[in-house]
Amino acid sequence: MAKQRIIEIWVGLFVAAGFAALFGLAMQVSNIPVFQTTEGYDVTMRFENVGGLRERAPVTMSGVRVGRVKSIALDERTYEALVTITIESRFDRIPEDTSASIFTSGLLGEQYIALDAGGTDWYLEEGDEIALTQGALVLERLIGRFLTSMGQGDD
């Protein structure tokens, strides 16, 4: 029976190690969305074009991450992109007239939403909408516009 006991201990260690590894992968290697979506408040905004923005992309303010993109949908009435972001609840003093823009980190990197603080004493709350937005810059359009203006310049 002593042998059986040793086997049980080993199996116990094995299972514990397996779950510890899984836990380590969850906590250290990835960011569990479950923990983040719960503690925060949702704010919506509309963009003319979201470009390559994805769900779970970072939302920053002055370069500091304050939240994540929760969902991206199409408003079928206005044909604008309806983006919902979740801001961590510790950042609860973000002015209501804050503006949002979609930027690209680096030349070809991931796209994110940057918030620029406004000046009122009223703060954003759950369900509010940010009115001032600046959509993504789409490279092709930019080039197109540039070429057109070049062409006009020649005349």
């Binding site: 969850a26 250290q28 290697v29 960011n31």
Partner: peptide
């Protein structure tokens, strides 16, 4: 090393799908 990993690796998408 860690922060880049954490922002790119998704728990549901990557870890759970592996499991």
């Amino acid at each position: 090393f860690w922060s880049q990993m954490q922002s790119a690796v998704d728990f549901r998408e990557d870890v759970m799908n592996g499991v």
